[in-house]
Structure formats: C-alpha cells, structure tokens
Design a protein around this nucleic acid. Structure first.
Length: 258
DNA sequence: ATGACGGTGTGGCACCGA
C-alpha cells in the first residue's frame, strides 16, 4: 500500500491537481494540509467519484486538514485533545489495511514565523502538545504513521542554505529537538530509510525562482512507528506537481508499505 | 535590510505563509 502527504495551499484552487495526481498515483491514503476552506465546501463528491473516502477538518482562510482513503475512515479525532486551539491543524483516523488497522495522524504544524515571536512560542507549545497526542495514540495503536507539513527541516542536509539560515525558522535547535522527540517515541523518518538524491526538498518559495534554483527545504515528512518500519519499501518526493501551472509551493511525499 | 509569489477576504489593500 502507499501513503502520502501533500500541502496543497488551497484545495479550492488545487482540487484538479489533486485529482490528477491521484489518477497517476492511486495511493491508499493521502493527507492534505492547508485546505483553506470549511467542511461545507469540502469536495466529498468529486473525491468519492475518484474512489476516495475522506475525513475533513476545515477552517476558513487558513489551515485545514483532510485524510483521503480508499476505505472508510473510523475513530476520527479533530485537533489535539486537551489543547485549546482555534486553528484546524491535526486530524487523526484509522484506515483498514490487509495487515490490520493503520492509525494515521495528519498534521499541519505551526509555521512559527521567527524565534522570539508569539507565533514561535505558539509553535513550541503546539509541538509539545502534539508530542503527547502522538505518544497516547502510539500506545493505543502500534501501527501508526504521522504525516504532514512539519515546518521543520530536521537536519542541515534538509535545507538549501543550512549555514545562512542557521537559527532561523525551520532550522532552530528548539524545532529540531521537537522533531527528535518524535523520533524518540519510536518513530522513523521513512525518507531517510533509503538512499536519496542530494538536495532533496519538499517545499520551494514561490519567489525568486526558488524551485528553478532548487532553493528549498525538506519540511514535509512521513514518520512510521516501529511496527511499520520493516514494511516500508520506498519513500520519495514527487517534484512533478511543482512544475504544474499554478502549483502548490509544496510537493507530495509518498511511501510504500509492503 | 527589504522584498520577491500566491491565496484569501472583501478590498482598492493587508494578512499570512515558509
């Protein structure tokens, strides 16, 4: 089976690209971030016609996440239990697979703007709360994957300019410590299980010819639990949609599980 | 040091993203 994540920066604008991508890559699970629409505007019918069930946690203008799957989604949890948060950033659900249930956590992590700002403090609070949520979910669901836009470049090799951008947003020690804390729960970065091209990124700034110059960051990730690790046979970033007319600034990341 | 591009909302721009 294949699972994937893609920040599509407005589902209203990008729905045709999502449908085209699914037609070319019929993954079993697709986590979407930055829907930028409310649940009542979510295109359930178009996705169902394409063969996908969906759970949506939308919001007007900003944020919003959804999980698409070929089989029904159950035990859906919206946002992080216990965290008072008016932003729609996390959606958790179970999908059935031939090897048993798979718990999927889809996260649109806080951007954080810059160290020292209120938004950065919110990011750190949010990351701490997410860690607790993932830990609790893992205890109940050993077969678990955490996918999404993490807004963290975990290592220097995940950034086009690790020296110039050292200590700036996505590159701070605090953010990287939180990413490591997720790994310390027993999760594994599926992308790094395999040989990868140098300078592999999942996001490029719209400005300054960022994509053409490959000035990007690898901030979209698929983390798998120990119970799934051995089953992962591939993980890659699909840069092709970034070349579309009217692209999202993010590319999809997908993993194959035996 | 700043802004650059793109989406949204309801606007004549400001805001947010990363």
């Amino acid at each position: 089976m294949k699972i994937a994540t893609w920040n599509i920066n407005s589902l209203s604008v990008r729905l045709p690209q999502v449908l085209a991508w699914l037609a070319a890559h019929p993954v079993d699970v697709l986590c979407l971030q930055e829907l930028k629409l409310t649940d009542d505007k979510f295109p359930f019918e178009a996705l169902h016609a394409a063969g996908y069930e969906a759970a949506c946690f939308g919001q007007k203008t900003y944020n919003g996440v959804a999980i698409l799957a070929r089989t029904p989604l159950t035990d859906v949890v919206r946002n992080i239990p216990g965290l008072d948060d008016d932003q729609a950033r996390v959606l958790t659900a179970t999908v059935q697979t031939p090897h048993g249930p798979l718990r999927v956590i889809n996260g649109y992590f806080v951007n954080g703007q810059a160290p020292g700002t209120d938004k950065f403090a919110y990011k750190l609070r949010w990351l701490q709360a997410l860690l607790g949520h993932v830990q609790a979910e893992l205890a109940a669901h050993p077969r678990l994957a955490l996918l999404g836009d993490f807004n963290v470049a975990p290592e220097d090799r995940d950034s086009y300019d690790p020296v110039g951008l050292a200590g700036t947003i996505h590159h701070t020690p605090e953010e990287r410590a939180h990413f490591q804390a997720l790994l310390d729960l027993g999760l594994t970065d599926a992308f790094r299980l395999f040989e990868q091209p140098e300078k592999s990124y999942s996001w490029w700034d719209y400005r300054m010819l960022g994509f053409q110059k490959n000035r990007g960051l690898r901030i979209d990730h698929i983390l798998v639990s120990a119970a799934l690790r051995e089953a992962v046979t591939a993980c890659s970033i699909d840069r092709a949609p970034r070349k579309n007319p009217q692209p999202s600034d993010h590319a999809p990341v997908l993993a194959t599980l035996a």
